[in-house]
Amino acid sequence: MTTLVIRKASVGPMDNNSYLLTCRVSGAQLLVDAAADLPRLLRLVREGSPSSRLDSIVTTHSHHDHVGALSQLVAATGARTFAGAADVRDIPTPTDEPLEDGALIRVGVNDLHVIGLRGHTPGSIALLWRGGEDGDHLFTGDSLFPGGVGATQGDAQRFTSLLDDVEHRIFDALPDSTWVYPGHGDDTTLGAERPQLGDWRERGW
């Protein structure tokens, strides 16, 4: 894309998706979810920057399969860490910058908008890059997948909270062309998922 390169790697026994965002203008780099497999993540970082520059690591939520290589990657790169404020206490590696809904994170000349999605965990977040002619790109962690929202362990209150946030903060705010990058598995678009919202609410998961 014009000002941003997005790279994706599947890592670890749970096939977590880690995403590397590289600013074409400044060379700044941000990783979404240092989930596992430090050697693979370091190779991913070098794909974007031969000098292994990594400025930031954002953790979408506190579950163990999303932070398995976090402490090692911080030690190897000196990157600053970001996570949803309500999840910080459950992340073993210290968080430099707790995030609330509406915050902004810079990747060179690019702004990432933080969207709070409460339910999968209390502090789950998504990251939105609005790329203009390059479209909208949304990194959803485990809060939104092809075919449904993230797991809420049968808790009706948590499910309603998550689906309400996903519906109002994502589907009501963004176009069908928005590309969705989940924490596991294949990408999707909001247009592909929008017709199913009523079915998700009815089934309760």
Score class of each variant (00 low, 15 high):
F145S: 07
H168N: 15
A126T: 04
T140D: 06
L41K: 00
L70E: 01
A76I: 00
D164I: 10
H64K: 14
R24Y: 03
T160L: 13
R80N: 10
A86K: 14
P13W: 11
W129D: 00
G68M: 03
E167H: 14
Q157F: 14
V32P: 00
H168D: 15
A83K: 07
A156N: 14
L21A: 04
T121V: 04
L127W: 02
N110E: 15
D164L: 13
T59R: 03
R203M: 14
Q153E: 15
P39S: 07
D15F: 12
G135S: 06
V114A: 08
G116H: 04
D142I: 01
D172H: 13
D165M: 07
T3L: 09
S161A: 14
A83H: 10
D33K: 03
L144H: 02
R158M: 09
I57L: 01
D187H: 12
L163T: 12
N17L: 02
D172Y: 11
W200G: 09
L144S: 03
D87R: 11
L21E: 02
A126I: 06
L20N: 03
T121Y: 04
L99W: 11
D33G: 03
V67T: 05
E133T: 10
A76P: 02
P182W: 03
S51W: 13
G68D: 05
